[in-house]
Write a protein that binds this DNA or RNA. Structure first.
Lengths: 255, 255
DNA sequence: ATCATTTTTTGAATGACGTTCAAAATACGC
DNA sequence: GCGTATTTTGAACGTCATTCAAAAAATGAT
């Protein structure tokens, strides 16, 4: 019975088509003007067919967000696999997140919207489950790094569990992404180069956690150099001259 | 010509009525089922009258969020006025935020939604300006505390400006609020007592910034004790037996 | 108090969407 | 081919946000 499998494959392919198209439409016309009818029409299907895949518009958005998150997870895992001290690897996770934000800025915008109660509660259980499970690998990487750091004696656990120690950098990143995407807020408060600051504060936090080897120099230049090195070693495909320059510009090398 | 003033006063009073009513409706029926018609009807006005005050539904939501933020700012300022070291006061700001989250959980839900691009971009310029200006005092408090800490030699500035140093705790809080309100996420990852962890990580971060006097013991009990003391000294009206017990429960005193 | 004029309120009408579902089309197994 | 099961279709429905012409109320000069 290859029929079932073929159908399943075709169904999955069509779902990808819908999601790809939705992404393109959002990119070109914005999230506001995305309608189910437009997505369907752009794929030459009837509106009703969309509902074979997604229980609601919100469900589609969550599916799209989850798929984008896959790329984020991939970057994350590359960062985690980087050879270096546990501290360097933890730092690299944040850099991966910053690079991802540059590479796919629409992801955080969408994710922020989707995790809103009003949207989240209109999604299907299955899709929510998939969203949570999709980002589980990131958590596992964090847990593993913290575990090794504690085992190696580079990080005192203070009675906290692995993820409880990792939750600090996590929320720091998340909070900064949120600020960056709150339009006008950072410029109102004259906070330039937010991601540069984020990475400096990550270093501060890791120092405060007593994560060895401690970093003495947490200046913006030092952080920029570190990022520069990481980009060469781990993210060379993402940091061509152009984007690296842009990233460093935003990080703010000293004038 | 007192007529103009009276009218302005009545207009402002009606706006308050609309916002109060919207808040109650959200509290009882949820954000999803809030409609402009329902808000108007609940106040015995026609739908069109609402649009004399708010250029769109999103505009109303932003206005509501901004008004709620006023209470947050008030708590913040009380925390900042607390007598103690600059470090204690900085810590107190985060406690104020946690208390506010307990006292008014709907605020962060709403704020998260409102700061979403899809909503934010449908609001009026005036309202956006008001929202930004409304939270400015919080920023000023942070700046002032950092300024004094640096001046007193309790905090090395490392070439960073006042707010650049305060942005760490800020994003840490914001990120945790975001995680807390992403329904199911924290329980999925088995992160209990998020706000207890937040305050511990605030201490870690402040230590990492070299903010004197450094705190040796960043255990959950020590943090809980500190919060306990703050509640007695500064937030006694908010921390009756009940709510304090609940708060400490969530913060997680050692078992 | 009266009346012309301005301002405000009203709520039915409009249009845009998300969502549904009966009918039509297609695929499938025999 | 043919009967049946599955899938697709897109018009129809209901809900809302938003508008605006008409009605009502307020104003202020006489």
């Amino acid at each position: 019975m290859g029929t079932q499998e073929r159908k399943a494959r075709e169904f999955a392919a069509r779902e990808d088509l819908f999601l790809d198209t939705a992404r393109k439409l959002i990119l070109s016309d914005g999230l506001l003007s995305l309608t189910m009818a437009r997505v369907a029409a752009a794929c030459d299907y009837a509106t009703g067919t969309l509902y074979q895949h997604f229980s609601s518009k919100e469900d589609l958005l969550l599916a799209l967000s989850t798929r984008m998150a896959g790329d984020r997870v991939a970057l994350f895992c590359r960062a985690a696999a980087f050879e270096g001290t546990t501290r360097d690897r933890m730092f690299a996770l944040s850099v991966a997140d910053v690079l991802f934000a540059k590479q796919c800025p629409e992801h955080f915008r969408l994710a922020q919207y989707v995790f809103t109660e009003a949207v989240w509660s209109a999604t299907s259980d299955a899709r929510r489950q998939a969203a949570l499970e999709g980002s589980q690998p990131m958590c596992e990487e964090v847990r593993a790094i913290v575990r090794k750091a504690v085992a190696d004696g580079d990080l005192p656990d203070r009675g906290l569990r692995n993820l409880d120690l990792g939750v600090g950098p996590w929320t720091l990143c998340l909070g900064m992404h949120t600020l960056v995407h709150a339009d006008g807020l950072l410029s109102f408060y004259d906070v330039t180069r937010p991601y540069g600051l984020l990475l400096q504060h990550i270093e501060f936090l890791l120092n405060g956690l007593g994560w060895k080897p401690l970093v003495d120099d947490v200046s913006s230049t030092h952080v920029a150099d570190k990022v520069d090195r990481l980009c060469r070693d781990v993210f060379s495909d993402l940091c061509d001259h152009e984007s690296l320059a842009r990233l460093l510009g935003d990080l703010g090398t000293t004038p």
